[in-house]
Amino acid sequence: MTAASAPPMIRVAGVDKFFGPLHVLKNVQLEVPKGQVVVVLGPSGSGKSTLCRTINRLEPIDSGVIEVDGQPLPAEGKELARLRADVGMVFQSFNLFAHKTIVENVMLAPVKVRRTPAAEARKTAMELLERVGIANQADKFPAQLSGGQQQRAAIARALAMKPKVMLFDEPTSALDPEMVQEVLDVMTGLAKDGMTMLVVTHEMGFARKAADRVIFMSDGEVVEDSTPEEFFSAPKSNRAKDFLGKILTH
């Protein structure tokens, strides 16, 4: 894909972000073309989650530009809400609405934001729950489900808005080990279907198998931007070598 043919789905240019005196994002540059799956790796505190959250402005930035599908992020308000409706997000802690059943969780935004009739929204929600393999849990409350099931419900909830791009903020970090795979399987399926995805994760297996590109962040900077093969077999920077050395030895 050439740069001129279409705007990238996500463009992050010269972004800086501070938490008080802490410089968490340092002049970050990143483009994600349509249909690409980009995995962001890095040690904790490297700014990768923050980067993910700036893309739908859950974290405002201090300088630089962020565009989604060619459109710069608007300030807080109706227009930002419209843009967020097109950007799916999956959180580390699921954040399912605790007072609503699983199917109601999936239906809420289509009905309230897209004004989809309830019957149609329910039908779509059930199809999505079928797709992530928890249709039989539709009428339970989030707290009655396992972590893996909750996270799959959260993915279905994001997909119900028919987003142009999906952001995953450490989607498997809060899960028991035996539940990680079921969530990764759903994500791999999405990637195969051509969804544009930005995934912050510690799952190296997923990065190897499903990613088109790997971004390595450290201390708020993008240190490497390469293919998974290149990154895992021949990392260029010492920081990446050090990081891989630590996680691959155990």
Partner: peptide
Amino acid sequence: VPVGQAEASRALGLTFTQMLGNVVLPQ
């Protein structure tokens, strides 16, 4: 109400009033 509930609502495109009325206040 955990802050994640509000964040999830905003991420889905709900306005402040929709978030308050459908997610935060009921809880």
